[in-house]
Design a protein around this nucleic acid. Sequence first.
DNA 1: TCGGGATGTATCGGCTCGATACATCGACGC
DNA 2: GCGTCGATGTATCGAGCCGATACATCCCGA
Lengths: 196, 196
Amino acid sequence: MAGGQGRVLELAVLGSLHETPLHGYELRKRLNALLGMFRAFSYGSLYPCLRSLLARGLIAEEQPAPTAIVGGRSKIVYKLTAEGKERLQELLTQAGPAAWEDESFGVHFAFFRHTEAEVRLRILEGRRSRLEERLDAVRTALARTAERLDSYTLELQRHGLESVEREVRWLNELIATERRASSEERPERDTTSTDE
Amino acid sequence: MAGGQGRVLELAVLGSLHETPLHGYELRKRLNALLGMFRAFSYGSLYPCLRSLLARGLIAEEQPAPTAIVGGRSKIVYKLTAEGKERLQELLTQAGPAAWEDESFGVHFAFFRHTEAEVRLRILEGRRSRLEERLDAVRTALARTAERLDSYTLELQRHGLESVEREVRWLNELIATERRASSEERPERDTTSTDE
DNA sequence: TCGGGATGTATCGGCTCGATACATCGACGC
DNA sequence: GCGTCGATGTATCGAGCCGATACATCCCGA
């Protein structure tokens, strides 16, 4: 009860408000532009989320400068509080399944510039294993039933596999880039030696 | 109330049972293998759906052959009724947004072999316009804000765009194949002339 | 001046998922 | 024989989320 909502939307809102204070309508527009192809948040979840964050003191209403008020426009601008910034950092530090599942990975990735390098790497690797798991499952299932399937089903499977394989390659590149960047940052450290 | 559920799961269940009678557990396994990369149905929606279909007379319990009963195993096998087959045909005929949105397109495509050629074409084209709409929206939003974005956000947008563009190309090929097949089937008909 | 489209806040019904509970079965070691 | 572990199997519950909808204001052009 009381608008608990999942951590994904919470992170998305907190992360957006970290850049600049916003009101609901604009917040939703930015979020859906930011995530573009991956998700689309709706008011039905956004407003309860804002209410919950407000109640928990993670965001606060910001009254506009008195000079700007003319007709008493009812626009509620929210800004991040100190507690909200703390909570955001906490969410950005978490590198678990909650960060690399389908629904949440995009949001976490979108705020990677506020995330520590080590956490970034673990999320990218977690995402990759998740996808490889799925590839294995589908490939074995496909091997057992391929001859029984019609051409449409087969084509669907083929296209799905290819899409996920493509995403894995994308992740590989990102991981390589992250590794390169982090080894350049402190070249003396060599714990994993040359495992790649 | 009473387990109405969306039409997607209903179609998936009806379509699967059309091949062969199944019980819940096996049904879910097949569904998730069939859709593989796209969705994963859970028991929390499957069982209410089965109950609803049962109540509406679209499926029926099939008692196993008496000779096979040994310990009275509690396995509930469902089969499609005549009304269920009718309903399935009805669902397969619908070519609207409900067929080409993200959540439903995969399921509709998976049962294309039971779908009329004309409906197939309209669903594929609907899906394509849907994706192109989204591409336009993201591309214009990107053009307006590209210089303000950090490299991670930019990379996310780029990857998202590329994935969707890839899917559009895939749809283009499928549409071309469908057109070719349908024009070979009845070569005298030439309403759209040579628009391609 | 009138209407339509963008802006803006808000709620409700209903669908869906993840977690969980509970029970049986077959295979394995010992 | 016996415990137990993982797969099979049915089922529910809390909670989150979406689509549709309602309502109000603002701005702009015909």
